[in-house]
């Protein structure tokens, strides 16, 4: 009996469904076109992109956890990458200090966004939208002013090549080496997943963030400093956006104004497909990773089939709308069943 229950719980877990779907689609695409199983040309880049997009998904997830949105994730990433790039180019910093500068800038931007939201009581959507607007101008302006026609910082700090091109294959313990498909880029993403997962699953702070998102007034009456929690959520969001921005710059090999311009949709796709509520109060950290990988498998699979970028967008949009409608239908069924019980 209890095994049946456990089985049912496993089967109804969105993450299991998503993983099955992802793996299934992966195999399907591979069977249709064996080029899809190519380690160097498909899987490695897929996982490397997945690493970046997972982090940006987590950035959005932090804002979603308190029931807010961050439309400026992409631009925060761009500004952070700009800061890191400048640090490498002008101050010749080494890899880690440069990265830290980027993270600080991203965190500061998120902090400012949160502060404006709390102080002005204007909704997060419009604050981050306007911020996106303003930062877009700022980023382009700085690149053009400082680098002229190149519009990029191209100084590569020592170790950047290692992170963008190598895999865990480099590391061997007792003769057993890591898999070749595992990009080094996945390491920071996994660290981010573990830290964010730990924050929301285990810590008091995470619990307080979620309760703020679940019911702001109840959280306030339970003695939780909701304003500080909102600011923190946005700070974390900015911090993770910054990490994603620098990771993308590493992957690309240069720091440009276009970093982050494609981040907005994926930042929502990952968490929403993974089961994070848009209204706040519940997050799925691992789900964000799986959701992101699902979208990438679809994208990569279709492009290996020779189907153009345009169809990818159509497919992703449909996936998003279907996932949302299904969630809504499921909720309706639950309410009906509950009514039946009382």
């Amino acid at each position: 009996m209890s095994t049946v229950l456990i089985m049912r719980r496993i089967v109804s877990d969105q993450r299991v469904v998503l993983t099955t779907l992802t793996v299934g689609l992966f195999i399907y695409f591979g069977l249709k076109n064996s080029a899809f199983f190519s380690t160097d040309f498909v899987i490695y880049p897929l996982l490397r992109d997945g690493a970046v997009l997972t982090v940006i998904g987590l950035a959005q997830l932090c804002a979603l956890s308190v029931g807010h949105l961050n439309l400026a994730v992409g631009r925060m990433a761009a500004v952070a990458a700009l800061a890191s790039g400048a640090a490498y180019q002008y101050w010749h910093l080494s890899l880690i200090p440069g990265l830290l500068i980027g993270l600080c800038v991203g965190g500061a931007l998120g902090f400012v966004a949160g502060l404006i939201i709390v102080k002005s009581q204007v909704n997060a959507f419009i604050v981050t939208l306007a911020m996106d607007f303003a930062l877009l101008g700022f980023v382009t302006f700085v690149y053009v002013t400082f680098t002229g026609a190149t519009a990029a910082f191209i100084t590569k700090p020592k170790g950047m090549e290692f992170w963008r091109n190598t895999s865990l294959h480099q590391y061997c313990i007792g003769g057993v080496c890591g898999p070749k498909v595992f990009p080094m880029m996945l390491v920071p993403a996994i660290v981010a997943l573990i830290l964010v997962g730990f924050l929301y699953a285990k810590t008091r702070l995470g619990r307080e963030l979620l309760s703020t998102g679940s019911n702001l007034r109840a959280a306030k009456l339970s003695g939780i400093p909701v304003d500080y929690r909102v600011i923190m959520a946005h700070t974390f969001s900015g911090l993770l956006a910054a990490l994603a921005g620098v990771m993308l710059a590493f992957t690309n090999g240069s720091f440009t104004a276009s970093i982050g311009s494609q981040f907005m949709l994926p930042s929502f796709l990952g968490p929403v497909l993974g089961g994070t509520l848009l209204v706040g109060g519940s997050v799925q950290v691992l789900g964000t990773f799986i959701g992101t990988m699902l979208t990438l498998v679809i994208r990569q699979g279709l492009s290996v089939q020779g189907i153009g970028l345009e169809t990818l967008n159509i497919a992703l949009g449909l996936v998003l709308l279907t996932a949302l409608s299904l969630g809504q239908i499921q909720k309706m069924f639950t309410t009906i069943r509950m009514r039946g019980q009382t």
Binding site: R207, L210, S211, S214, N215, R217, A218, G281
Partner: peptide, 12 residues
């Protein structure tokens, strides 16, 4: 409106 976190389990 003010007393419960409906998305939370009873424990939390």
């Amino acid at each position: 409106e003010e007393g419960l976190f409906l998305t939370f389990p009873v424990r939390k």
